[in-house]
């Protein structure tokens, strides 16, 4: 214990910081605290739009995310899907990223039964198509582009597709993504048929879609984990995002606390030692 307290405040060992972070996350995850949430206008608009759809409307839910970003996208998708199912909407899942199908299968294996949803009648999973933008533009020629579902069953044999002529019969498109897929839906399907779009995206997606939100082509947007948590609360569906937001808040507080502690030590040390601030390298 040779170094004075103000120097120790500036050099908390990294493993201690890491262990504290895990603890700070685990406590509210296991025992949610119900800290306040901000409610953003974009999420509210998204909720209101979906909530107003009459029973039996068709939602086209596009999945373009992978495990690198599923921490943000999956809670959004789950909250949305639970809301669709609660309101009796028909769902078409379409993975435009290779890993996307996995998340649709998770709905089929775990969550559909909760709401008594029948595959083929209430929801359908389309197969993954490679090609990014062209895999979205191709939807305009629906029946030749998409003859069968993910299991290889012809779509015309599925009850959901009885009377389905083309993408014009879709009531809303919901791209759930960390990439620019949302823009492709705007420029191809919204432009051609005027189909409304609700975005669900990671934080960096917001600046991209800002102009389309302003112009009304995109009706609402659920952004980041906070968006997912807000949606869970608005739709009154259970989910992990709300609990996760407590952990997020605590994490932010921990970081701010660490910054304050470090600076306390630094500024006090500077007063004691004169102007011997350490570690002054930076361009």
């Amino acid at each position: 214990m040779s170094s004075p307290w103000y120097e120790r405040l500036q050099s908390i060992p990294k493993p201690a910081i890491y262990a504290t972070l895990i603890l700070v996350f685990l406590v509210p995850l296991i025992r949610p605290m119900g800290l306040p949430l901000l409610m953003s206008e974009n999420t509210r608009k998204a909720y209101e739009y979906i909530d107003a759809l009459p029973e039996g409307s068709i939602v086209f839910h596009s999945i373009a995310f992978n495990p690198a970003v599923d921490a943000e996208n999956w809670p959004q998708m789950l909250a949305l899907v639970r809301h669709y199912m609660k309101n009796g909407l028909k769902i078409i899942f379409y993975p435009t990223m290779q890993e996307g199908g996995m998340y649709a299968e998770r709905i089929r294996s775990t969550y559909a039964a909760e709401y008594g949803y029948e595959y083929g009648e209430d929801y359908v999973i389309l197969p993954f198509k490679a090609g990014g933008e062209s895999a979205i533009a191709g939807l305009k020629d629906f029946w030749s582009f998409m003859p069968s579902d993910v299991d290889g069953t012809p779509l015309k044999d599925l009850p959901l597709f009885q009377g389905f002529t083309d993408m014009r019969d879709v009531d809303v498109i919901v791209p759930c993504t960390g990439s620019s897929d949302g823009l492709f839906y705007v420029s191809h399907l919204n432009a051609a048929y005027g189909t409304p779009i609700i975005m669900a995206g990671t934080a960096p997606v917001l600046p991209f879609i800002g102009p389309f939100l302003a112009s009304g082509q995109v009706k609402g947007a659920i952004i980041g984990l906070s968006g997912a948590a807000e949606y869970e609360i608005l739709a009154g569906v259970p989910g992990q995002a709300t609990g996760a937001m407590d952990a997020q808040s605590m994490g932010h507080l921990l970081i701010v606390g660490l910054v304050l502690i470090g600076n306390l030590g630094f500024l006090y040390g500077k007063r004691v030692n004169g102007k011997n601030g350490q570690n002054g390298r930076r361009s």
Partner: peptide
């Protein structure tokens, strides 16, 4: 996903280390 989640630790320790007045 494990490697990407290391970012949470890194962003915490980097904030502590580099945000000094």
């Amino acid at each position: 996903s494990g490697i990407s989640s290391l970012l949470a630790f890194m962003i915490t320790s980097a904030s502590y280390r580099s945000f000094r007045f």
